[in-house]
Design a protein around this nucleic acid. Structure first.
Lengths: 155, 155
DNA sequence: TATTGTTATACTCTATAACTATA
DNA sequence: TATAGTTATAGAGTATAACAATA
């Protein structure tokens, strides 16, 4: 990712949260593909794997809503992951319209293989900020999108 | 835009800056189309208009780099805006490969028509945060992407 | 009637490379 | 040889609507 030219006056865009978020996300995507290079994984697929790992048996529609992925698109993603042997699908007895999703053994192994790269990428993608700034930034973003704070282990 | 389900454990995604940015940007896009409804403008087009307004005669390639829009895509955008009478293009004498961009009178009028909606949208898209938090969030995002702080009038 | 997942279609933005004209 | 813009093509992600099965 190339740097921004510093000779340009961004005008009111400098104060536009939406614009700042767009540039920030592009930076984050570049960092992702940089840090996860060679693992052949896309951000969407990784997010599905991580949520399935933390929520075994989650319903497909709930997963889609949680990740802000349209149901139609989630169908394609999950079908592809099922085809690759990462995910299994079951129909619950109490609502036979729904689909519950589970990681297969292969899926769990895939998560285990991706976690180290994902974890070591965290500090890299916040290299321009101090640890305190990083904590603050994440907290404000969570508040902005209405995402509850993660449980923090209290010593 | 629907709310996130609060029954889902996001696991390590809660700490992933890239994931938080993705959700935040989707929220911002929804806010944009909500606040600018009826004005028939897209985020990309508005950003081009605002930067052209602040940088008359900017070269097309510099504009593309500033907005992180690929040159090929910028060509299509600018051509369309030229066709709509918003932008004029000139070839500078010192480098006849380049193209300089200018707002036409229609373009200036378009900016003037969009500015009020753009400005009043600012507070709306940060409704979940306090003013101090908003200031901090924007400052941290600018630092993250390497965008210089805007000039602040000192009283 | 409403909901869950599915299928199909189209559109936007993006990625890439090849091409021209200039430098 | 390198650069600025253009053109063309393909792909990912998304939006939308219609549909079947189930509630």
């Amino acid at each position: 990712m190339t740097d921004l030219p510093d000779s340009v006056d961004y005008g009111p865009l400098s104060e536009s949260l939406g614009f700042l978020l767009r540039l920030s996300q592009l930076r984050a995507f570049a960092d992702f593909f940089d840090g996860m290079a060679g693992l052949d994984v896309h951000p969407g697929e990784l997010s599905v794997l991580l949520v399935l790992s933390a929520n075994p048996g989650i319903r497909q529609g709930v997963l889609a809503r949680a990740l802000t992925i349209k149901r139609a698109h989630m169908t394609k993603m999950v079908r592809a992951m099922e085809r690759d042997g990462l995910v299994s699908r079951t129909v619950p007895q109490d609502d036979r319209r729904a689909v519950e999703l589970w990681l297969t053994d292969t899926g769990h192994a895939r998560v285990a293989a991706l976690r180290p790269a994902f974890d070591t990428q965290q500090p890299r993608e916040t290299a321009r900020l101090t640890p305190d700034e990083t904590t603050t930034l994440k907290r404000l973003l969570r508040k902005h999108i209405g995402l509850k704070e993660p449980d923090t282990p209290c010593p």
